[in-house]
C-alpha cells in the first residue's frame, strides 16, 4: 500500500531536485550570460526551498498542522512553551535561508552590473561570441 502523503511529499522533493538539475544545465550550457544569471537565481532559490523542506515537521494529527516558529503569547506558561516546541517547525533552516537569500541577491546584483559592463565593452552577452571576439 502506498502512503499517499509520502508520495505527494516525494513529488515535491524530486521536482525540486529536477529543478536543481535544470538550473545547473542553464548555468553551464546556455550561451547567454543573462540566461546564466536567471538559472543561477533559480538554483539558489531551489536550494533554499530544499533547506526549508528539511526543516519541516510532520503533522501531529491529520488536521493539526505545524505552526511557524513564533510564540504568540508574551506571558507563556510552561504548557504554552511545551506546546509551542511540540508544534513549531525548525527555525534554524529558516534563519540560514534568510542569510542565503540575501547573499544570493548580493551576488546576483553584482553579476548584473558586470554583465552590463561586458555588453558595453563587447557588444554582446553571448559567451560564444565573446570567446570568438577574444580570438
Amino acid at each position: 500500500m502506498i502512503d499517499v502523503n509520502a508520495f505527494l511529499f516525494s513529488v515535491l522533493v524530486f521536482s525540486l531536485i529536477m529543478n536543481l538539475g535544470i538550473s545547473l544545465y542553464g548555468i553551464f550550457w546556455r550561451p547567454s550570460l543573462v540566461k546564466k544569471i536567471i538559472a543561477l537565481t533559480i538554483l539558489g532559490d531551489t536550494a533554499n526551498v530544499l533547506a526549508i523542506v528539511v526543516g519541516y515537521r510532520a503533522w501531529i494529527a491529520p488536521n493539526r498542522p505545524p505552526i511557524p516558529p513564533v510564540l504568540t503569547t508574551w506571558k507563556p506558561t510552561a504548557t504554552d512553551l511545551s506546546k509551542f516546541s511540540s508544534l513549531a517547525v525548525d527555525p534554524l533552516p529558516q534563519a540560514l535561508v534568510l542569510t542565503a537569500v540575501v547573499i544570493g541577491l548580493a551576488v546576483t546584483v553584482f553579476l548584473v552590473f558586470l554583465t552590463i559592463q561586458v555588453y558595453r565593452l563587447h557588444g554582446t552577452t553571448d559567451v560564444r561570441k565573446i570567446a570568438k571576439l577574444k580570438g
Binding site: 548555468i27 550570460l33 546564466k36 544569471i37 543561477l40 539558489g44 544570493g104 551576488v107 546576483t108 553584482f110 553579476l111 558586470l114 554583465t115 561586458v118
Partner: peptide, 8 residues
Amino acid sequence: VKYGIIGA
C-alpha cells in the same frame, strides 16, 4: 563574470 557565475 566567468569567475562570478560559476563561483556563485
